[in-house]
Design a protein around this nucleic acid. Structure first.
Length: 426
RNA sequence: GCGAAUAUGGUGAAGUGGUUAACACAUCGGAUUGUGGCUCCGACAUGCGUGGGUUCGACUCCCACUAUUCGCCCCA
C-alpha cells in the first residue's frame, strides 16, 4: 500500500475543522496587532538558510531537505520561517519604507529531516511574527505578548515565559570566550554531546540535560555578567515592559537557543503540562540584530518568534480545551424514492443559497439508513420529501433532537428554519 | 544519527506449531418497530506488515527489511 512519507500527516475530519478554526483565530489576532501577512516560498536557495541560520547549526548541517532543480540550482525546503521573511524584507527594500517598523506574521509548512516523535513531524506548521527596524525593547515585549495572548485566548493555563539575554555582538562574543575558557579544564567531565558543543556551539552546553545537575554547570559564567551597559539596559527595559503588560516571566540563564542569529533577548514560552516533556516548549524566539546584515541587507534590528502548530493543538488536547468548532449541519434532506430526488436536489440548493448548511442522500439509502446518516452528520433537522409531500407541495420536517415533526408548505421552509434554528442558539 | 516497543479485517482486539483465525464495535442486507435510534436473523480477513529460513506443517519459532509509536540529540 502506498503510504505517506515518514513524518507527515493527512488533515481531514475534526482535525481539519480545528486547523481552520485556529487559522481564523491567528488571522484576527494579527489584525488586532496590526501585523502584516507575509507568504514567502516554501523553497529557497540553499544559501539563504546556510547564511541565515549558521552553517554549523544542526538544522542546516543535518536536517534540511535539499534538492537540485532542473537548472542545477541548489534549493532547500524551508526549515523555518525567519530567513525567508528577512530575504523578502531585503529584496523588496522594505528598509526604505516610511512606516517602520515592518511588522510581519506568517503561517505555513516547514520541513526538517528528523526522526518523528510525539509533537514533531518532518513537515510541520509554524506560526510566527517578525518585527524589523526597531531596536526598542518595547518591541521585544510586544512580540512576547503576542505569543502569550494567543495562548491565553485559546484558554491555555499554566503558561510560563522564560527569558534570557545574550547581549549585543560584543557582549555575546565576550561571553563566548569566557565560556570556552571556563569549560576547557572540565572537558573530560562533560558528556560526549557537550564536548561536541564545545567546538560547535559552546552556548548550548548550558542547556544540556545530562550534565545539568553538575556543579560545573551551576558555576558556569552567566550571560548577565558579560553584558555591556547598553545590553543590560535593554534587558532591564524588556522586563519592565513585560511587567507593564502583566506577563509573568522568569529569567532563565540557560536559554540560549540553537540558532546563530540571536542577540539580546531570547525567550521560550512553555505550556507546563505534566507528561508533555520536551513538547512543552510551544514557542521560541528572540532578537536578531545581525541577521539582516548577514543576509546582505542594511543594518536593521529584528525580533520574532515561531510557534509549532502541531504542538499547540496537542497541548490543547492534553488540557482538554475544546475549540468552538462548528459540528453538524442544519438540515439533511431525504427523498423517499427516485421520483422526489430532483425536488430534493432543488431544495438543497435553495437552502444552501439562503445560508443554511445542508446535505442530502447521495447513496440511495433506504429510510432507515438515511436517518442514521442524518445522525452521523449531526443534522439538526431532517426534511423528508415523499409522494404525499410532492403532491401537496408540502414538506415533512423533523427536529432531530426533540423528535418533533411538522408538515409545512414548502414555500415557508426558509422562514421555518430561520425561526427554529434560532432556538438552538439559546 | 542513537535507543526501546509494536506490527492480525474499516476500528478495538483474542489466539494455538497442525483440518473452519475468537469476540466486540462499525458497515451492509433482512425481520420487527406508527419514519431511523431497541430487539432478532444473516453477510463481512483467499488472510495474520514484507521477504527469507527452521519444520512433515507456521499467523504462532529464527533472521533481515520496512513501517508505526515513544525517548535521546536538536528544535517549534
Amino acid at each position: 500500500m502506498l503510504q505517506k512519507p515518514k513524518g507527515t500527516y493527512d488533515v481531514y475530519g475534526e482535525y481539519g475543522k480545528k486547523i481552520l478554526y485556529l487559522e481564523a483565530i491567528l488571522q484576527t489576532l494579527m489584525e488586532k496587532y496590526n501585523y502584516e501577512y507575509f507568504r514567502t516560498p516554501i523553497f529557497e536557495a540553499s544559501e539563504l538558510f546556510h547564511r541565515g541560520l549558521g552553517e554549523t547549526t544542526d538544522i542546516v548541517s543535518k536536517e534540511t531537505y535539499d534538492f537540485k532543480d532542473r537548472g542545477d540550482r541548489f534549493m532547500t525546503l524551508r526549515p523555518e520561517g525567519t530567513a525567508g521573511i528577512v530575504r523578502s524584507f531585503i529584496e523588496n527594500k522594505m528598509y526604505g519604507s516610511p512606516n517602520m517598523p515592518v511588522k510581519a506574521w506568517y503561517y505555513g509548512p516547514m520541513f526538517r529531516y528528523e526522526r518523528p516523535q510525539s509533537g514533531r513531524f518532518r513537515e510541520f506548521y509554524q506560526f510566527g511574527v517578525e518585527v524589523f527596524g526597531s531596536n526598542d525593547p518595547l518591541v521585544d515585549a510586544e512580540v512576547i505578548s503576542v505569543a502569550v495572548n494567543l495562548f491565553r485566548l485559546l484558554g491555555l493555563k499554566g503558561i510560563k515565559v522564560n527569558i534570557n539575554t545574550l547581549g549585543d555582538t560584543e557582549s555575546r562574543n565576550n561571553y563566548r570566550e569566557a565560556l570556552l575558557k571556563y569549560f576547557k579544564p572540565y572537558l573530560n567531565d562533560l558528556c560526549e554531546d557537550c564536548r561536541n558543543r564545545y567546538t560547535k556551539n559552546p552556548l548550548r552546553i548550558l542547556d544540556c540535560k545530562v550534565d545539568a545537575d553538575k556543579d560545573i554547570m551551576k558555576n558556569a559564567p552567566k550571560t548577565i555578567d558579560y553584558l555591556n551597559i547598553e545590553s543590560k539596559e535593554h534587558f532591564k527595559k524588556v522586563q519592565e515592559y513585560l511587567k507593564a503588560l502583566e506577563i509573568d516571566f522568569e529569567i532563565n540563564p540557560n536559554i540560549v537557543r540553537g540558532l546563530d542569529y540571536y542577540t539580546h533577548t531570547v525567550f521560550e514560552v512553555e505550556a507546563n503540562i505534566q507528561g508533555f516533556g520536551s513538547q512543552n516548549v510551544l514557542c521560541g524566539g528572540g532578537r536578531y540584530n545581525n541577521l539582516i546584515t548577514n543576509l546582505g541587507g542594511p543594518e536593521t534590528p529584528g525580533v520574532g518568534f515561531a510557534i509549532g502548530i502541531e504542538r499547540l493543538l496537542t497541548a490543547l488536547e492534553f488540557e482538554k480545551i475544546e475549540l468552538d468548532i462548528n459540528i453538524g449541519i442544519d438540515a439533511y434532506i431525504i427523498s423517499m424514492s427516485e421520483k422526489e430526488k430532483i425536488e430534493a436536489f432543488k431544495l438543497l440548493q435553495n437552502l444552501r443559497l439562503n445560508g443554511f448548511n445542508c446535505d442530502m442522500d447521495y447513496m440511495n439509502r433506504n429510510l432507515k439508513s438515511n436517518f442514521k446518516q442524518s445522525e452521523r452528520l449531526n443534522a439538526k433537522f431532517v426534511i423528508i420529501i415523499g409522494e404525499d409531500e410532492l403532491k401537496n407541495d408540502i414538506l415533512t420536517i423533523k427536529n432531530n433532537i426533540t423528535k418533533e415533526e411538522y408538515k409545512i408548505d414548502s414555500c415557508y421552509i426558509i422562514n421555518f428554519l430561520d425561526e427554529k434554528l434560532g432556538d438552538f442558539d439559546e
